[in-house]
Amino acid sequence: MKKNPVIFLFALCPLVPVSARFGYALVMALALCWYFLTGIAFRELVKKLDLSSAGPTVELVALAFSATVYYLILRWMIPTLAVSLGLYVFVSAFSYLLLLGIDTFSSDSLESIPLMQFVPTLILFSAVRELLGFGTISLPVPEGLMVVPVLPGFSSYGIRFWGTTGGAFILLGVLAWAAKYFHRRISSFRRNA
């Protein structure tokens, strides 16, 4: 399940709306890392307290707790972004569960490979989307998002379609194809070497 690219893309889909801006994706990527770290901490706590039968339930409650803590910290630091991203903080917890799977989340393994691939993919995907769709790169600041124009004259020749959700799904398809293509090329190169 962990290596299934369909699950990987399915985990990315709920976050497609927020991947329109690089700044949003940074906030979401940080959320996923936070869930991972708190997940490890809670798993150790469950082991230490010997809550064997209640363990998976406690870990799921802990994930909801982590998401809520992240939301509260976000609204403390960047209140405006907390209004627009509030729902997606909890959606990202769902994506995190999809990535690791409930069984893996409760197991002894500290397998982190899906997450470690997912976070850079999310960041890269949003950077490409924002560049193509807005010609800018945005960064989170206490007031909200600071927008840095990168492509000069974007308003004249830019195509905003790539910044929309429809454009995102097309880009996602292209990205999935490119990843598969390069994976095959690298595998075949290694076999021949």
Binding site: P17, V18, R21, V83, S84, G86, G133, G144, G163
Partner: peptide
């Protein structure tokens, strides 16, 4: 202050 989701993602 409301989360409004447009064609290019959510905004406040």
């Amino acid at each position: 202050a409301v989360r409004v989701t447009g064609n290019s993602g959510p905004v406040t």
